[in-house]
Computed example of a mutant assay.
Amino acid sequence: MPPPPIAPDGPGQVPYGYPGAAPAYGYPGPGPAYGYPGPGPAYGYPGPQQAPYGGVAPYPAAHGYAWPGMQPSPSNGLGTASLVLGIVATVGFVLWPVALATGILAVILGGLGRGRANRGEATNPGVALAGVICGAAGIVLVLVLFALLIATGA
């Protein structure tokens, strides 16, 4: 069943749309008499000679399959882990075995994170430095707690 005849607003225009708009409901448009190249494919489907999305891939396929010349994503995990462990060591220094272990790990991971940031592999040198500082503060708090326990004879 052919679509009902609809008169365009003017030469080269689609009814109820803007000039050059795809016609609604798959109706091919006014055709070559009004400057169009002729009936094209249905709305939303590329023609046989047209590549999808104008010949450009929409997104890279997945992590690791980037476009040529694209920089790898920064690996900021060590600095972030250092900051989290440093905060845990500083806040939970009363639980001295946990605080001592997390403080040491925070200092080590923060140093590794700073090294990655200096090589340009990471973008968070400040976060890694904060992790080193918080981890060192947690270790110092544990040592002060030990000194207080020894001094009081507990």
Rank of each mutant, 00 (worst) to 15 (best):
A66L: 13
L85Y: 03
V94D: 13
Y45M: 13
A117W: 00
G35C: 06
S73Q: 15
G86I: 00
Y43D: 14
V91D: 00
H63Y: 12
S75D: 14
P46A: 03
A42Q: 11
L78W: 10
P11R: 06
G110A: 13
R116H: 10
P32W: 00
F146A: 15
Y25V: 07
P37E: 01
G55P: 05
P125I: 01
G120S: 05
S82M: 00
M70E: 13
G135M: 02
G55F: 09
N76M: 08
A122L: 02
P74F: 00
T123C: 01
A128G: 04
V127K: 03
G153V: 01
A33Y: 04
I104L: 14
L143I: 15
A154I: 11
P46K: 00
P19C: 14
L95I: 12
A154P: 01
G131W: 01
Q50G: 03
A130C: 06
N76Q: 08
N124Q: 08
P68W: 04
Y16K: 11
P46T: 07
G120F: 04
E121L: 12
G40I: 00
G47N: 06
P30A: 13
G138V: 00
Q50W: 06
G77T: 11
P23C: 15
P28H: 05
I139K: 06
A22N: 10
G54I: 02
A51K: 13
G110L: 09
G31I: 12
L148V: 12
A57G: 10
G20F: 08
V84A: 15
G38E: 03
G20I: 07
S73T: 15
R119Y: 07
G20W: 05
P30Y: 02
E121T: 08
Q50M: 07
L143V: 15
L141D: 03
N76L: 03
G153F: 07
G17S: 10
P15Y: 04
V88K: 04
P30C: 11
A147G: 15
A33R: 13
A128N: 04
Q71S: 11
A151R: 08
L145H: 15
L109S: 06
L105F: 03
G38S: 05
P3C: 11
P125A: 05
G20V: 07
P2Q: 14
